[in-house]
Structures are given as structure tokens and as C-alpha cells.
Amino acid sequence: MQKAGNRPAGQEIEKRVRQSPRRKLLIGLGRGFGGALIFGLPLLMTMEMWSLGFYMDRFRLALLLFLNMPLLTLLSYHAGFEETTCWHDDLRDMVVAYAIGIVASVIVLAVFGVVTLAMSADEIIGKVALQSVPASIGALLGRSQLGGSKAEASQGSERVNYASEMFLMAVGALFLGLNVAPTEEMVLISHKMTGWHAVALIALSIFLMHAFVYAVEFAGSDPSLPPGTPWWSAFLRFTITGYSIALLISLYALWTFGRTDDVGLMPVLISMVVLGFPAAIGAAAARLIL
């Protein structure tokens, strides 16, 4: 749908690409590395991510690395290196994206001198493994970000379509949320806020999300929100659901980075709301930015 405007150029490129499978592969890998850098660089240059690499709980790191696999596979289904027709294509893309993420992280961390041979294996592996998660997501999104096409919800049954809309929202929440989640500022901001600030931030997050949902609706690109849908229907089915997803992802990220350990309920909830703000914007903008 989005490609309708530049179809001739796109077709030409497609044709040229189809002539040489090796060239196509190289372009795909190049876009993967590009995407890994675009998404991964802010985190590769974040101090907290380096230290988290060696001090974060090993079980939580392993869980994050494991959960990244189904995430990448599903993401490949929605926006992979190429049109995938069956699930083992998606699995292959997942492995390739993970590999690109690891290689890109090793190269960049080594060039920065953040990872050196003098360090223990545990530290090197921890740093690279943690960075490979955002970098691999970036590698998979590289195609949609750099290749001109977009991630789209699957056009299956309504149930599948809705679930995949929600999945794209979750990816959007990760996209913006992960970039700020490991920083000290998340905790610092939540310490500066009172309960009233938190409630105001929740209202602001939901308002902005709904504005984005409406932007999509006006664009008319989404079959789940045809013109004439009452506002409360879109609000309940997309805005509020999307916001809960953003909050859950924020909570998971905070827990993974050890920001909830030995912390009272109220500070945890407020930092969840703080991180939920960028995550909510990411979730709402998912269909615009992915």
C-alpha cells in the first residue's frame, strides 16, 4: 500500500536485485548491519549498558536472550529481510539477525575499547550478549527502515490481525523504551516525581497515544479502524490496550535491568509510568515508524 507511489523505481530495483542472488544477499546483510547500528548505537554508547553487561543477574540476561528469539521470529514474519513464506524462513532470518547483532556489537564495543582482551570472558560475553538484543532487533527492522517497505499487521483472520497489531505495538514500545530503560535517568526522574506527577504523566501518555491512534485512523491505512469507528471503540481496543502493553514492557525492562530489586511498590510503579511514557509513544507510533 505504502509503496504505491514509488512503484516503478521499486520494481526496477527489485528486477535488478533478482538478477543476482549474491547481490541481493549482500544488500540484505548491509541493511541488517545498518539497522543494527541505527537501533543499537544509542545503547552501544550508553555507559549503563556496559556495566549492566557484567553485573546484571545472569538468569535475567539469559531470559532476555531467550525471549529475543521468538520476538525476532515474529518480527521477521511481519518485516523480515525478505518476504517469508514459511516459518523456517522466519527462523533463519531470526538466526541471521541475531548473528548480525552480535557481530555489530563486538565490532563497535571493540573499537570503543569497551571490550578488550584483558577482560574476563564473563564480562566480554555479558556486554556483547546484552547489546546483541537491541542490535538484532535493529538488524531485522533494517529492511523495513532502510528498504522502503513497512512492517504490516498480518492480513489473516480478525483475531490474528488484532494480535499482530498488538505485537507491532509491543515492538514499537521496545523500540523507544529500550533506548532509555537502562539509564540512571529513569530512576532519577521517578525520584523527582510525586504521585500527582505520575497521574499527570499517565494522562499525557494516554492522550498522546490516542492522538497517534487517530492519526493512523485518519490516514485510513488500517482496516481495523475503518472510518466511522466511534472514538471509545478505538480508545478501548487500541489506546488503552496499547498503553497496558507499554507499561508491561516497561516493567519487564526495569526488572531485567535490576531496577526493581528491593524497591518499594510505589517507586516501582512510578518508574514504570516514567518508562511507560516513551514506550507508549513508541507503541502508538509503531504503525507509523516501523
Binding site: Y162, G195, V199, P223, R237, I240, T241, S244, L269, I270
Partner: peptide
């Protein structure tokens, strides 16, 4: 399209989410 009517699942997800967000706001308030 076959997308004329939102699936029941969408209302269940929306309702559950509304409860979660309301509980969160209620607790913080």
C-alpha cells in the same frame, strides 16, 4: 476485508487493560 466487527477478544483485551490502568491510577492517587 472481513474486519467489519471487532472480535470479542479485542473487547476482552480492552476491558482487562482498562481495569489495569484504572487500578494503577487509583493506587497512585
Amino acid at each position: 476485508g472481513g474486519n467489519e466487527k471487532p472480535h470479542t477478544l479485542e473487547w476482552v483485551a480492552g476491558g482487562l487493560s482498562a481495569v489495569v490502568v484504572l487500578a494503577l491510577v487509583g493506587f497512585i492517587l
